[in-house]
Nucleic acid binder design. Structure first.
Lengths: 141, 141
DNA sequence: CTTGACCTTGACATCATGGGAAGGTCGAAC
DNA sequence: GTTCGACCTTCCCATGATGTCAAGGTCAAG
């Protein structure tokens, strides 16, 4: 039998694992500290963290969820569902839907600000003179 | 001569002044600590901060600027221009324009997230079964 | 004189991330 | 066999805007 079936799994140190997942080593330690990632196994003498393919996979999951704006608390929930074979897709969809709702809310707030700003800017000459409707509005009595 | 011309200016304590400007007392102290508001005069014995109408006016300016999403640093600049009679409206408009640009950038990021989420949610059954394209996407290899 | 409302400062929490210090470990080059 | 650079460890501090809480001082009304 060739050795292919007995190859040890890749074991990466934190820098390599983080890079493979698109994270910083700093963040990987932080995620472990707050319980988002399980405590990594360590090398005997140097106490370095070691990661296998599954760990990197989980890190990538976290990074993708972050890039969609999910909070750590939400990611913790999503990770639990991801690992739970008895989950219902409804539970996942509920979290995603709530988050999308939050995002739309924030977008609406920001859009309100932009609209007000643009309205004020349209009335501001933007030249060397001091008269300025933007300041007038901010300083209204 | 009636006393009307010699009325002392209103002097409010921090809670009253903050309420009049729509801020919390806490925030007024904080704005003073970071140099956004000038150090308030104090009562002799009790060391309470005292504010006049101009101070409240400035606080209101800060609150309105915050409600448009300006950062403290930007508000510091805007306050300087507000008080500077030799300002150019162009300087104000530049700050506002930059801020509007930042806001549009953030809106675009959030909209990207919402679009991705909505796309994924459209393909998720949201029922009792575990299959879920949302988790599939987050956990893609 | 007590009570309650207000004020003072200061420390700590949020949220996700980064920076840096001080020191240990490893591999490779000399 | 030492030295050097790259990496790792933990721990502390910073961000931005706001809030909470605690311990204590002040004041006006009852």
């Amino acid at each position: 039998m060739p050795s292919t079936s007995a190859l040890p799994p890749q074991r990466l140190k934190i820098g390599q694992a983080a890079a493979a997942a698109g994270l910083s080593a700093k963040m990987v330690r932080h995620y472990e500290a707050i319980g988002l990632l399980p405590r990594a196994t360590r090398t005997t003498y140097s106490n370095y963290r070691l990661y296998g393919p599954n760990d990197v996979h989980t890190m990538r999951f976290v990074r993708r969820a972050r890039s969609l704006g999910f909070s750590m608390a939400e990611i913790k929930e999503l990770l639990g569902l991801w690992r739970n074979r008895a989950r219902s897709s409804a539970a996942v969809k509920r979290i995603a839907g709530k988050h999308a709702e939050d995002l739309r809310q924030r977008i609406a707030e920001l859009e309100g600000m932009v609209e007000t700003l643009e309205h004020l800017m349209r009335h501001c000459h933007g030249d060397h003179r001091p008269e300025c409707p933007i300041l007038d509005e901010l300083g209204r009595a």
